[in-house]
């Protein structure tokens, strides 16, 4: 039973990096966590196991939303692969697995299972609010600091103005032309007039306006370079 759960955890963990759909990837990871939680319950760590499932369900829901927000092609309708240094990573992963497995197989593992009559959850509760209270409270304070930090990092309105003020994508080369989309700036309209001459003869205001907007933020001379079309 534990073997099946562990195998399922590994299989779904592997699926995370194979499937195209980001939602499927997130929930594969969740399936892996649920299997690990189930294995924990079978190994009489009932509170830790079930709490893992509970916590990870909420966490992976948030993860799925971020995945959809930040990935191109989140539904995986087109196959895609966004990896770098693939060979090296594979080697590192395999090496980690083989090394740890060798350590597991060669080591003389202790064999002292939990006595069946132990009141695991009861003892854990006494431990949490007794001798180990400092550890428990430290975790609590860390989480509080995390909350404050996350809000500070992600809030749009900071003490010194808007967080994306002067936002500029990194260059493709050192100090080079910015990559990716360029944020809308009020300068876009200004550029629009500058770019008008380049498009000479194009009097369709609507389409020209849109293109001029795309050029906003680029140098005059390089307007054509940054044109996504």
């Amino acid at each position: 039973m534990i073997l099946a759960l562990v195998l399922f955890a590994v299989w779904s963990g592997w699926r995370v990096f194979v499937v195209d759909s980001m939602v499927r990837a997130s929930f594969s990871l969740l399936a892996s966590f649920v299997a690990v939680g189930g294995a924990g319950v079978l190994m009489s760590a009932s509170y830790i196991g079930v709490a893992t499932v509970f916590m990870m369900a909420v966490e992976m829901m948030v993860m799925a939303i971020f995945m959809v927000a930040f990935m191109m092609n989140p539904a995986g309708l087109n196959p895609m692969s966004m990896v770098h240094q693939n060979r090296l990573s594979m080697a590192a992963g395999a090496l980690a697995f083989l090394g740890l497995s060798a350590a597991v197989l060669t080591a003389d593992l202790p064999d002292r299972p939990v006595p069946p009559e132990t009141r695991v959850v009861f003892d854990l509760g006494l431990e949490l609010l007794g001798p180990s209270m400092l550890i428990f409270e430290t975790a609590g304070v860390t989480l509080l600091a995390t909350m404050v930090g996350a809000v500070v990092l992600s809030s749009q309105q900071g003490r010194f103005g808007s967080a994306d003020e002067g936002s500029r994508p990194p260059g493709l080369t050192e100090n080079g032309e910015p990559a990716g989309r360029v944020p809308d700036e009020s300068g876009g309209h200004h550029m629009h007039h500058g770019g008008h001459g380049d498009h000479g003869g194009d009097v369709d205001g609507a389409s020209d306006h849109g293109q001029g907007h795309d050029h906003g933020g680029h140098h005059h001379g390089h307007a054509a370079k940054g044109d996504p079309s």
Binding site: S46, Y47, V50, A51, V53, F54, A57, V58, M61, R119, V120, V121, F122
Partner: peptide
């Protein structure tokens, strides 16, 4: 289970 309401909480999530 000794953690019945945590199981229910997981079902909710």
């Amino acid at each position: 289970s000794p953690v019945g309401i945590v199981i229910w909480g997981s079902c909710e999530a």
